[in-house]
Amino acid sequence: MSNREMAVTPRFKTHSQVWSAVGMWAWMLHRLTGIGIVLYLLLHATLMGTSLIRGAEAFNATLNTLMTNPVLHLAEIALVGAIIYHGMNGIRLLLFDIGIGFSRQKEIFWVSMAIGAAMWIFVIISKLS
């Protein structure tokens, strides 16, 4: 492309982002966990649905394969973590939607994260024991 053309269309922009803010990271994680949970939900609904329609035997066989796999148990801990994050940050977003907490958004984030972390640790402990 000649320099002239570049000067006209498309014109150069930078897309540098603000990475030093809590809100940006909260949003990034909310998106990532959200997409992850959607993928899991699609898989979960398909697996449970197709095996249940085929009857009790197929359901028992599927669950036996899934629930005896140690790797999947670790993945489950990550999944529950993602759900807890998405839920706790979701509460924060719902508060904004009803008009609460705009001036305290960072504090609300850290409080909800502390509660979420406690819940996640509780799940991990009860799962390992």
Binding site: Q17, V18, A21, V22, G23, M24, A26, W27, H30, L93, F96, D97, G99, F102, S103, Q105
Partner: peptide
């Protein structure tokens, strides 16, 4: 989506996120 980047950088300390919610 309530990122608050606008509020983070506003030199006048406005919170556009709040206006958008309204």
């Amino acid at each position: 989506h309530d990122q608050f980047n606008c509020a983070e950088v506003c030199p006048k300390n406005l919170v556009p996120t709040k206006s958008i919610q309204q």
